[in-house]
Design a protein around this nucleic acid. Structure first.
Lengths: 196, 196
DNA sequence: CGCCAGACTGGCAGTCACTGCCAACCTGTC
DNA sequence: GACAGGTTGGCAGTGACTGCCAGTCTGGCG
């Protein structure tokens, strides 16, 4: 079903990666806002039109294709054994995501800093995460023994949005600490304060 | 300090209100995205240039000036007596905000629906709330007996972002219930599931 | 080899949000 | 009635993004 992996596909992958690379370099050099898509296109050696075909929006140059990670998150949470608490199941999902990210730590910090310091990027990131949250609703409901309804259950919603909010808070603090703090530790502290 | 309230100020207020009114009408008629700022300007009887002077962005037509509400939130939380728990203090802040909103319930629902169904609007709303969260950090830190540092304390951050996340979840569910559910009840359920 | 359908690319013109600039105007004051 | 300060409107421009069309490149087929 998704085995082909043609040579063409791989070359496209390479092109995408190279574009992202030049974009991040430009953003680091002159900032996100003051870098235009035309610049990225020129330096990456593609037409502006094609650039917009690869990445629908400027934000996507940074926020990338989070859909795959979202699927991984959901399936990991769903795959946790029943005796694992909902909180631990969600945590396991996020741990899996972080370790599965194909960026080197250095670059991950740079990307995170970009996202947390540029409102439009942060907004886009937030938006993508909304989709993850929606996808998690049935999984968490089942895990909490709530039978699914037409609309999400407020209890399941509460748990999900809380975990995401704490992950977000920990990430922001991690970035603002310059990557020198342990993000998992920050997350644990935040959640501990919440759960009393 | 802020007593003048000149006639001029009031007429400006009226102009702003009227623009918002026509904008919301247009959004309801043909949707947010497919309504242009030029249309709003024309129907409201101002030049496009002036429209952008009143509202810096298209989103601000809907998200309005949340800064005043943010100040109210912070001061209300800060004004809660010391024996009130942090959770209750934050809740009191939000209750104050909701009741202080000068929109009729019907319009409030309409605005909320706009925000929750249009990604750019939701993103902008989220962004404004980030400022509220930042402003709350010192207040909550003091209330939790944490001495303020250069960066926010993860525990205070956790509590703040959790409350915001649950308020957000409750609001979204309220909107998706067509305004027929009690938002405070939804909030209580969400938070109860979190705090166990 | 020649041919052809399908996918990818590039350029071009257009839309829309948003901004800087400048001239016209309006308001209150001396 | 002139004058200073703030307000408005038009105008031209930037930058993200899209639709359209023509050129190109590829793999299959006779």
């Amino acid at each position: 079903m998704e085995k082909p992996a043609t040579l063409w596909d791989r070359s496209r992958q390479a092109v995408v990666a190279e574009i992202v690379d030049t974009a991040l370099t430009l953003f680091a050099e002159q900032g996100y806002e003051s870098t235009t898509m035309a610049q990225v296109a020129t330096r990456a050696g593609v037409s502006q039109r094609s650039l917009f075909r690869y990445f629908g929006t400027k934000e996507d140059l940074v926020c990338g294709d989070q859909d795959a990670l979202g699927d991984l998150l959901v399936s990991t949470v769903a795959a946790q054994p029943a005796e694992v608490s909902t909180w631990d199941a969600l945590k396991a999902g996020f741990v899996t995501i972080v370790t599965a990210s194909d960026h080197e730590p250095e670059r991950l910090l740079e990307i995170s800093r970009l996202i947390f310091t540029n409102p439009p990027l942060r907004a886009r990131y937030f938006e993508k995460r909304l989709k993850w949250q929606r996808a998690l609703v049935p999984v968490v409901e089942q895990r909490m023994g709530i039978e699914p309804g037409e609309l999400p259950d407020p209890r399941a919603m509460g748990v999900i949005v809380t975990v995401f909010a704490c992950v977000d808070a920990a990430s922001e603090l991690w970035v603002r600490h310059g990557g020198k703090a342990d993000p998992f530790e920050l997350y644990e502290q935040a959640l501990a304060a919440v759960r009393g």
